[in-house]
Design a protein around this nucleic acid. Sequence first.
DNA 1: TAATGAAGCTAAAGACCATTAGCTTTACTT
DNA 2: AAGTAAAGCTAATGGTCTTTAGCTTCATTA
Lengths: 195, 195
Amino acid sequence: MSTKERILDEALTLFSQNGYDGTGVEQIAEKVGVKAPSLYKHFKGKEDILNALIDNAEARYEEFFGSDKHIGKLPETKEEFIQTAIQKVSFTMRDPMIRKMRKFLVREQFRNERFAEITTKHQLSGIQGMYTKIIEGMMQNGLFKEDDPELLATEVTAPVALWIAKADRQPQCEQESMESVEKHVRHFCDVYMTE
Amino acid sequence: MSTKERILDEALTLFSQNGYDGTGVEQIAEKVGVKAPSLYKHFKGKEDILNALIDNAEARYEEFFGSDKHIGKLPETKEEFIQTAIQKVSFTMRDPMIRKMRKFLVREQFRNERFAEITTKHQLSGIQGMYTKIIEGMMQNGLFKEDDPELLATEVTAPVALWIAKADRQPQCEQESMESVEKHVRHFCDVYMTE
DNA sequence: TAATGAAGCTAAAGACCATTAGCTTTACTT
DNA sequence: AAGTAAAGCTAATGGTCTTTAGCTTCATTA
């Protein structure tokens, strides 16, 4: 990993922990194993690092949710739907990179319009759009009762988003959150899926 | 309003806009109409202001959700449930004080455990607890089908929380969010309420 | 081999910021 | 009327933080 990438990596870690204003360039440099002025060989300034990170966040979004590839094959049974859903949540909640990115966006979402938009994309449009398509497909296959797929996508993903946010704040609740998620998803399936 | 209260008021406004680290004591003083050193006649330091604000947030939570008073009388029809729900959301989304408090907590939730806990209370326990009791009561009155009231409370409140968060980030979406809320609540009632 | 440019370093400038010291005013109390 | 305490002010201190200037090293290339 190049120094430039290492700077971005450590900056993201620190920004997600202490926020942009709460992080000094010296801290970033120290984590990278370099003195602060050396950062300026790679970035024009502190804000340039921030902008590079948000560029990455946007690119990551496009890469992940830009095409329909990430949907994969549609679940064919209720249990398969539940299992893949839980597994996705567990991964999203625990993966260090995704976790850092999420906390970073939550912290900096009010900085300007661009941050706001990208946060909405990551937090709402992306995952809800994905589940809209999955449910739509499964509806056509007769696995879901006829209903508005977008509405159902919101209803299944929104509680999950709140529990993930809680686990980000209070990591000791991670297990508890996962249990709530499973209970919720099962209930959702009982209500909206066909037998 | 006393100077001390005015300081807290302006500090909350600025902290919700620019964050704690992004706000200088001089800015607070200027909004109050006073020079920065005068703040120290009322608070021991900048962090003391922050702590007073979080004390207020906690007190406000206890006052509002501590007793069951805030539940009021149970809705007696589907339409009444929908109307009161929408009205509560509209108020919560638009009231300037509540909005500032919410943005403040979202921004500072990772500062320490106390902030994390109070944010969870405001964002999850409070409103979900309220709806758990409302739905529970209405279930006993035969207006809701038999189900787990806590689960239903989560399912009706979580999407609302996400739309409110979106409207905080992107105020131009406020109307759109309210429409989504209404659509969602109506769908929720169609599914879980008796005829 | 000489030249070049990338990437590091030290030292320091310059801005900003929270806080303190010490003075003044004002209002209330005795 | 004298005393006192609250609440404001100016000036300044000490610290931190971002950024720049200028030097060194080293690898690559002409």
